[in-house]
């Protein structure tokens, strides 16, 4: 079975207008292509991400989900072998155009990674780091925000007595919540989460998932996962990717209950 034939016949132009009626778009990706030296990693991606919703990027590993996520805050800059073209608009600014200050664009997005990577400093400083970079100098404001964001991820009560100890001594679940809080502290519009529970035990995973459901009231969340059940629990919208292409995109209910392509049907049936 050739993969090509399973892709829905939507014109590339039309793909861009797949905005669900009634949703406010925050992120608009048009004709995004990513190539490395000898492979095309992302092919003609068109995607509009709606505000205050959880959009899940779903697909088997190696399909380009993580690369797509890294394009959104241009961490792809770190990999000089990657060539990007197309556009990614946030607030009407095309972040790929190079006209805008990338450090400010990155502050519009908080990143949560597969494994927690606490910065090599105290719990307090982990949160304060982004604030100081934003130029906030006043101690009282910083303390206030540290507390606020640690509460936001339900970590405050667990760590309030040891804010000055090294973040690396926290449990891995706590570390991941700290990393989430660290990202929230710069007050982003969007949270980019790359398989945020893959290194965690089931209980910590649940805590993170619950956080996400709460956080979507204030933030837009883009979540990469390959866990089908997690996608079902969290997703408002689902983007199903396969070999660097978006195969299907739509509201979660539609995608899970009424898949159009054979490849997605197969994926949902096997369930991984």
């Amino acid at each position: 079975m050739s993969i090509k034939t399973t892709i829905p016949v939507i014109s590339k132009e039309a793909a861009h207008f797949q905005v669900v009626p009634g949703e406010v778009p925050v992120l608009n990706i048009r004709n995004l292509n990513v190539r490395s030296k000898n492979a095309q990693i992302l092919k003609n991606i068109n995607l509009v991400v709606p505000k205050n919703k959880i959009t899940v990027l779903l697909g088997p590993s190696g399909c380009g989900k993580t690369t797509l996520l890294k394009c959104m805050n241009r961490l792809t800059d770190l990999y000089s072998e990657l060539k990007l073209d197309g556009s990614i608009e946030i607030d009407g600014e095309d972040i790929l155009s190079g006209k805008y200050d990338i450090t400010q664009i990155r502050q519009k997005m908080g990143l949560v990674m597969q494994r927690p990577f606490p910065l090599p400093m105290s719990i307090y400083d982990n949160i304060a780091y982004g604030l100081k970079i934003k130029g906030i100098r006043k101690k009282s404001i910083i303390s206030e925000k540290v507390e606020k964001h640690l509460r936001e991820v339900a970590l405050w009560d667990e760590v309030k007595d040891r804010l000055k100890t090294s973040a690396q001594r926290l449990s891995i679940g706590q570390q991941q919540r700290l990393c989430l809080a660290r990202g929230l502290a710069v007050e982003p519009e969007i949270i980019l989460a790359d398989e945020p529970t893959s290194a965690l035990d089931p209980i910590s995973s649940r805590v993170i998932e619950e956080e996400f459901l709460k956080l979507k009231a204030d933030y837009t969340i883009i979540l990469v996962t390959h866990i089908l059940r997690q996608a079902k629990r969290l997703a408002d919208f689902v983007v199903f990717m396969y070999y660097g292409e978006i195969v299907e995109y739509g509201p979660a209910s539609e995608i899970f209950e009424n898949p159009k392509t054979d490849i997605l049907k197969e994926y949902l049936r096997v369930g991984h």
Binding site: K70, N73, L75, L78, T103, Q104, R106, Q107, M109, G110, L111, M113, R115, F117, L119, P120, Y129, G130, I133, K134, C179, R182, G183, V186, L192
Partner: peptide, 12 residues
């Protein structure tokens, strides 16, 4: 590398 990515994504 991810530690660098974490810091950069905070706008550093």
């Amino acid at each position: 590398v991810e530690l660098g990515e974490a810091s950069l994504s905070l706008g550093a």
